[in-house]
Nucleic acid binder design. Structure first.
Lengths: 136, 136
DNA sequence: CTATTTGCAAACCCTTTGCAAAAAT
DNA sequence: ATTTTTGCAAAGGGTTTGCAAATAG
């Protein structure tokens, strides 16, 4: 949690309990929707408002701490710390993270050469069939 | 335009003039928003309704002819025919297409090996600074 | 002490829906 | 002849905004 405080300070954002609760939830549950974040954080902050969730997600998005995923259907949110790519199951819609720094780096290199420009952030999303749905 | 008719027939979609106008616009102007499609197609079909644009984009999305892009801000739409990746300018927000079948294939292979699953569709988006903004 | 953040309620989109008429195959 | 699509208007839902009070630094 120490890192989070530093990260917020670095971006000049105040470490309010509500904000920390949102970040903490994002660290445990991957890719929740706004509604899911709201429902969860409300357990520890019964008085929290939906508007506060929106405002926080937007500011965290603006500074790059959080990224927005559009898998079709509702938008989902993800803490943007380690380089990874996303697999969206075309049956159930769930998103799975794949961490592979080597592959991400290799793709980045190839893309960079192809387009002849610097790449600031790289987002790779693919559709697949997840293991659970493959069995069914 | 012949190809489009075949494509629609293949997906069991009727070739209405409104639908063709939308597809035609998507072939000329890349990555318009819903509103832009509406304003443009209205020029040739003054009586067209926003609901018709939405319904068409949704059905075209469902069958895979059109893809949805979420560059931050409003959603944008793109005809999904040739394998390409998207660069979003972090200054002006414009989206640029990069066609490179070789690079797309190479990335797909690497990702596939890394995750050990079949990839149905692959979407690569990156943020960059476009040439226009780089000069300014 | 100052700047940011919260929470409430209202406003404000954007998007979808139902339905009857029109059009496509 | 059958099925899809259109266009309208209304409903719906998600997201943002303004503002005063509370809180963080």
């Amino acid at each position: 949690m120490e890192e989070v405080l530093d990260l917020l300070k670095e971006k000049n954002l105040k470490a309010t309990p509500q904000r920390l609760a949102i970040l903490n939830y994002l660290n445990h549950k991957t890719h929740p929707t706004i509604e899911e974040i709201f429902e969860e954080v409300k357990k520890s902050f019964p008085s929290i408002s939906l508007a506060t969730i929106y405002k926080n997600i937007n500011t965290l998005k603006d500074v790059g701490i959080v990224i927005e995923l559009n898998p079709g259907g509702k938008l989902k949110y993800d803490i943007n710390i380690y380089p990874h790519f996303h697999g969206v199951c075309e049956k159930c819609g769930n998103i799975e993270d794949f961490y592979d720094e080597g592959v991400m780096k290799a793709c980045k290199e190839k893309l960079k050469k192809s387009m002849n420009k610097n790449i600031k952030r790289l987002s790779i999303t693919l559709s697949m069939v997840c293991d659970k749905c493959a069995k069914a």
